[in-house]
């Protein structure tokens, strides 16, 4: 098949098959093959969207969860990048602690949420700190990777021009490692978001995670599905934006 044809036809096929699946599901539910107490009819879900936006303050919740994620992201950068630099600077520190950071990245920190809860209270602060703790390790590792991969000659150009330490950092090392740092941030925020929404859901507090929990506990099935759809949409848009920035960085770097 010619490439141009695939480019147009294939995505259309993808979208159509998803719609067809929804229609088939609707048919199965209407004919009682699938219980409507497990999966509500897709049309009900679509109708529930307007209702939850109106009654459940979806926008405010969305802003709250986004704000928490944003806060975690800032903390992650503020702490993760300097640690990455330190590990790059000191060969000893790197040998001693890189494996620790990698282990930290894999640790299921969300289980420790009661600890965060007692330390920081039942507040957004707990959620931000947990999001930070869950997402910082990839930024450390990727910063380190980016710095290690920085071409020697770029550093030499700076040195041959009597660059100061601060300038070397700001004008050469950071820009050179930026694409990797950003990749780390995207990975880190994936983990942050899992933990942030997860904790909201667990402790029934805050933004979108709580909304889903509450609607489910009220047994508002169509509303739950609509809210799930909303979270899906929001995180898809968010990560699509992140990827665009990343691609732009890689092009100009």
């Amino acid at each position: 098949m010619p490439r141009a044809e695939v480019r147009l036809l294939a995505p259309a096929c993808g979208v159509l098959s998803l719609i067809a699946a929804a229609a088939a599901l609707q048919a199965l539910i209407v004919t009682d093959v699938v219980s409507r107490y497990v999966v509500p009819p897709p049309t009900d879900v679509v109708m529930a969207i307007a209702r939850i936006v109106r009654e459940e303050h979806v926008v405010a919740r969305f802003l709250l969860t986004s704000g928490e994620t944003f806060g975690s992201g800032l903390l992650i950068l503020a702490v993760g990048v300097p640690i990455g630099f330190w590990l790059h600077r000191s060969a000893l520190a790197r040998r001693a602690f890189e494996a620790w950071v990698a282990a930290w990245a894999a640790a299921p920190l969300v289980l420790a949420y009661p600890l965060f809860l007692v330390l920081f209270g039942r507040s957004s602060l707990t959620i931000v700190v947990l999001g930070f703790a869950a997402g910082v390790a990839p930024v450390v590792l990727k910063t380190l990777e980016g710095l290690t991969a920085t071409r020697r000659v770029l550093v030499d150009v700076g040195r041959s021009l009597q660059i100061t330490r601060g300038q070397m950092f700001r004008k050469i090392l950071i820009p050179a490692a930026l694409p990797e740092i950003f990749t780390g941030l995207r990975l880190g925020l994936t983990f942050s978001l899992i933990n942030i929404v997860g904790v909201e859901f667990l402790i029934n507090f805050g933004g979108l995670g709580q909304l889903i929990n509450e609607l489910a506990e009220r047994y508002d099935l169509a509303g739950t599905y609509a809210a799930i759809g909303f979270v899906l949409l929001a995180s898809m848009v968010f990560f699509a934006c992140m990827e665009h920035v990343e691609r732009w960085l890689r092009r100009t770097h």
Partner: peptide, 28 residues
């Protein structure tokens, strides 16, 4: 190539979504 153009985008965008949001449905 065809399947990739049709569906990979969806898989890709679903990947970072916090999966816990599906738990109420999975419980049911």
């Amino acid at each position: 190539h065809f399947l990739s153009r049709a569906y990979e985008r969806w898989v890709h965008y679903l990947a970072p979504v916090p999966k816990i949001i599906f738990f109420p449905v999975l419980l049911l």
